[in-house]
Design a protein around this nucleic acid. Structure first.
Lengths: 409, 409
DNA sequence: CGCACTTAATTCGCGTCGCGTTGTAATTGC
DNA sequence: GCAATTACAACGCGACGCGAATTAAGTGCG
């Protein structure tokens, strides 16, 4: 546990103020005080420091004045967009998506490279990522040394602190130190994060989780990702490992153990139907599920059943998550949602059946179809979050691992 | 989020010091400073305040001196056992277990009432609990007004803040306000907690989780409980709901959705074999699983298979938990463990099969057979933890609940 | 145009916290 | 009995947050 000293206190309040400015945009000091429950004095002191550091800037609203408002007008404060720039990236098996954002997360430039990196050697992928970052930064009219942090997100199990990729569909080998590989190439602070955590942050900052500090997010793409926001912070396991959903075993019999990813991943839905070259091509381009939907509408019953089966499995898995985390909200994202009701109908039914009665009204389920860019933007948000100086030790080395052992009594 | 002020800072450090004294018993100020990474000055100030409040006491060790130690001897500090007394209780379907502990969690008296409360009206159960508390307090040679808090633990989904029991095998009705019912009778601060959380605290304070601030506990009794310790604190859902495991659906097909509790609860194991009156009686007495083990050893193949099936399901469920929480340790407790290897062999095999490769070395699994008293003691520990003034808002009202709804885009 | 009124933001003084330094207490070794 | 050693308390410093008082920057009305 962290020891509490004035420095920590200040860090907490400073972050709190900065986060409030981010969330509510142009906001006056008084209102910050109201929202953070800090005294006007403290807010003034902290904002003064933030202004001094160039992280925020003032805006005197000459015109847009609330009519009938008397007294000294409020000075609005906003994030200083120029304070920093970061790059966020989404690494998926068949594409790389980059975006450059300013300090408040506005996208300055974005870039999609439709390349299949799936199973390529680490060095090759790192080269591609380096290239994409450089190009995207150039597109934004910036130089590389104007970038504070680059945050990469990818599916799999990622150790946040060390930036090691324990396992991922992207890499053939386990335990890839992606952070190191990228840092070596770009010489910029690098963060590696699970793609599910990235999109979780994106939803929290820009999307359907803006008003909510506690939710669970399920990302349904080629891999099945899980992100948990708890008290406004990403929930990380004790070892700072990202969470996974695809490895959830659906079934009670170990002989027929079947993973959720074998039922609900895109590959699982397509299984048995990749003879169709149109589908193959669509998958290459990352449009697989849209194409599948088309085929279903044309009457492909096999795919329809596969989609329904995936939906059912997901509905059950989500019910399990609700039972475990009791979140007020569950957000569903991911390319597989392009299947629409062919997936969601069965998902809803399965969820409603599986959710235990007393938890029926606990979680609100939200379906959000998002762009690839938002994922990359989420990665950028992760980077910005750390720049904001989150005081809750999201950084730091992962703790040592203990070997598994069964011990009695 | 809480606003950080000097008061919070002090509360954190004070709790930290107090917790250190609890964990390491007789400990000197210097050593507290080393362990908490607080300065000697601060430790002195805080311990002075704690001494002033009578929460700790000094102990000059005249004899037991580390040989060769020169200089002024350290003054050892211990919790003042007299500082407070609490009652912890475990409410199970066929028994009530009470214990009175002092401020450091030592059991002063314990009492088991082998009554079946299962499905009795709330008022009747509350009467029984009242009776048990009064008797146990008397057994400890105390008066009721010397008790600071009474903490009840029971299976099911419990809203910690409000003390409402959303659902439980104990009560016929949902949404029982047990806290209120008990508080009305005893006029003592009352806490209602899930039994899994109670035993989780017990393991953390007194058992196999002493050295570990992050672990997951699975309680395998009539109900299947789940406790998650995260950063030394019980992990509670956003609504302060306790977590459940029995409701986990094992299977991907909603038509044949089967809950873990239907595979691995004691009732599930016994299903089809309750014709045997010896078993029936043993269950009444809470010895069901010991009896089942005997029957298996006598050659009852049906029960053997049921036990193995339960173990398999549990192994898979635990693997799922590891994938979700990535805890360094998983502790298994509960009366069903009396089945021994008839349960555990298949559990181990299923776990090993189900755990994804990259997580293989993440979690250490510990099996701990504990007494009923420890559960009650764990409830007492929950109460003591709040008395210690944990600053992380474990108290406070549950937030409002939002109705479920599906919404698109 | 000037003056009261209103509201925002800053300044000032107070109390508290944690920390480093200094001083004191309690013991051992010789 | 005296130096050496170690534990602890006392004092002062700087930082923080807060409440009250003060200054700043407008509006409204005579």
């Amino acid at each position: 546990m962290k020891t509490a000293d004035p420095e920590l206190m200040r860090a907490i309040n400073r972050f709190h103020v900065l986060d409030t400015i981010r969330r509510f945009g142009a906001i006056s000091r008084v209102e910050i005080g109201e929202r953070t429950v800090l005294s006007a004095t403290t807010v003034s002191a902290i904002t003064a420091s933030l202004l001094d550091d160039g992280l925020i800037s003032t805006r005197h609203e000459g015109d847009l004045r609330n009519s009938g408002n008397r007294g000294r007008p409020r000075v609005m404060l906003t994030l200083n967009p120029e304070a920093a720039r970061v790059v966020g990236a989404k690494i998926a098996s068949n594409r790389l998506v980059f975006c450059v954002t300013n300090f408040q997360g506005d996208v300055l430039a974005s870039l999609t490279l439709p390349v299949r990196v799936d199973r390529l050697p680490v060095e090759v992928i790192a080269d591609l990522v380096e290239d994409g970052v450089r190009r995207c930064v150039m597109d934004a009219g910036l130089a590389l040394n104007e970038i504070k942090t680059v945050a990469l997100s990818l599916p799999g199990i990622i150790e946040h602190g060390t930036g090691r990729v324990r396992s991922s569909a992207i890499f053939r080998d386990p335990n890839v130190s992606l952070k190191e590989a990228i840092h070596k190439r770009l010489d910029i602070d690098t963060i590696v994060e699970s793609d599910a955590n990235a999109i979780t942050m994106a939803e929290h900052w820009f999307g359907r989780g803006r008003d909510c500090d506690d939710f669970v997010l399920v990302a349904i793409e080629e891999s099945l990702g899980l992100g948990v926001l708890h008290g406004g912070q990403l929930f990380r396991g004790a070892r700072e490992l990202s969470l996974t959903l695809g490895d959830m075993i659906m079934g009670s019999d170990p002989e027929h153990a079947i993973k959720l990813s074998e039922l609900a991943s895109e590959r699982a839905i397509l299984d048995g139907d990749h003879g169709d070259s149109r589908v193959r091509d669509a998958i290459r381009l990352g449009q697989g599920m849209g194409r599948v939907r088309g085929l279903i509408e044309e009457g492909d019953n096999e795919l329809r059943i596969a989609a329904a089966r995936a939906g059912s499995a997901l509905g059950i898995a989500i019910a399990n998550l609700v039972a475990l985390f009791a979140p007020p909200r569950v957000i569903l994202v991911g390319s597989t949602l392009a299947l629409g009701d062919y997936l969601l109908d069965s998902l809803r039914i399965a969820f409603a059946k599986a959710i235990p009665e007393p938890l029926k009204n606990v979680a609100q389920i939200v379906i959000d179809e998002v762009s690839d860019e938002l994922w990359a933007r989420g990665a950028a948000a992760v980077a910005l979050g750390e720049l904001y100086g989150s005081p809750w030790g999201t950084t730091g080395p992962a703790r040592r691992s203990t070997a598994i052992e069964f011990s009695e009594k």
